[in-house]
């Protein structure tokens, strides 16, 4: 029986590759050295949390005495999320169409649409909230607009990817019939993308509910305003009540969204 020598376990790499690996490792190590907290500081911090006068001890038991007003604020938070997500999803569709290779009317338009989507996605929603507070003032309207812009960036990208990935056969068939661009998009592209659009829209709603609480911290309406006030006034027990009620809302929305996803897709 002929013996075949086994190949080397590792391939010989070029010097440039070794240098690239070393540079990557140096970046990771230097990043830890510059920013990571030391274990001693973490230990002392955890000790303070659990001390008799520490934050956790002051949070328990949660104070639900303002259940009614907090519930109304939660409803406002949910409404902000729904309104912002709905507007964002609606406006994401035309942006996504313009950003799609096959559907965009011109390469320049496609590049511009992609740049706008990238800008909306890259700037954090808190920054958008601060910008819209300057534009429309404090309150939920600024939050709704911040969520809308954030969702155009989020859904615009995923909608465009879904449209890029669809089978082009039905589109070509309708084009060969003489159908117009809008007819092809509505008749062939949207039905094919429906499962993906639905999943993205539900994720966008979940993301909006979670994000809308944080927007209140900068004054853009919703439960975040109450949470910030509770922390500022050292009402940690009320802050915990708000956090628990917010958690219940987020879980409820996630469960409902998961159920709808299973039913529709």
């Amino acid at each position: 029986m002929t013996a075949f020598p086994a190949p080397p376990r590792f391939q010989q790499r070029r010097l440039a590759e070794y240098i690239a690996i070393l540079l990557a490792l140096a970046l990771v190590v230097s990043s830890f050295a510059a920013t990571a907290p030391n274990l001693g500081a973490i230990g002392r911090g955890v000790g303070r949390l659990f001390a008799p006068s520490g934050l956790l001890m002051q949070m328990f038991p949660p104070d639900f005495s303002r259940f009614g007003p907090i519930a109304w604020k939660l409803l406002e938070t949910l409404q902000m999320a729904v309104a912002g997500a709905a507007l964002g999803l609606i406006f994401a569709v035309p942006f996504a169409i313009l950003a799609t290779d096959r559907l965009s009317p011109h390469p320049l338009v496609r590049t511009a649409a992609r740049a706008i989507i990238a800008l909306f996605r890259t700037v954090p929603d808190l920054i958008w909230a601060i910008i819209f507070i300057i534009v429309v003032g404090l309150g939920p309207a600024a939050g709704v607009m911040a969520i809308m812009i954030d969702k155009i960036g989020f859904a615009g990208r995923f909608f465009a990817e879904a449209m890029e990935e669809t089978d082009t056969g039905p589109q070509d068939a309708l084009r060969a019939i003489g159908a117009g661009r809008l007819g092809i998009i509505v008749s062939a592209v949207f039905p094919a993308c429906l499962p993906s659009f639905t999943a993205t829209s539900l994720f966008a709603l979940e993301k909006s509910v979670r994000g809308s609480a944080a927007l209140g911290l900068v004054g853009a309406g919703g439960i975040g305003v109450d949470l910030k006030v509770a922390f500022d006034l050292f009402n940690y027990d009320e802050a915990l009540a708000i956090i628990l009620m917010l958690l219940a809302l987020v879980i409820a929305v996630e469960q409902a969204s998961g159920w709808i996803r299973r039913k529709l897709i």
């Binding site: 309708l174 003489g178 159908a179 094919a192």
Partner: peptide, 22 residues
């Protein structure tokens, strides 16, 4: 066949009218 898979046979046939209507 290049039909739109998630739609009904009737809707797919209707698409043929896009040659003359919009």
């Amino acid at each position: 066949h290049n039909l739109v898979p998630r739609l009904s046979a009737l809707t797919n046939v209707l698409h043929g009218a896009q040659s003359r209507l919009s």
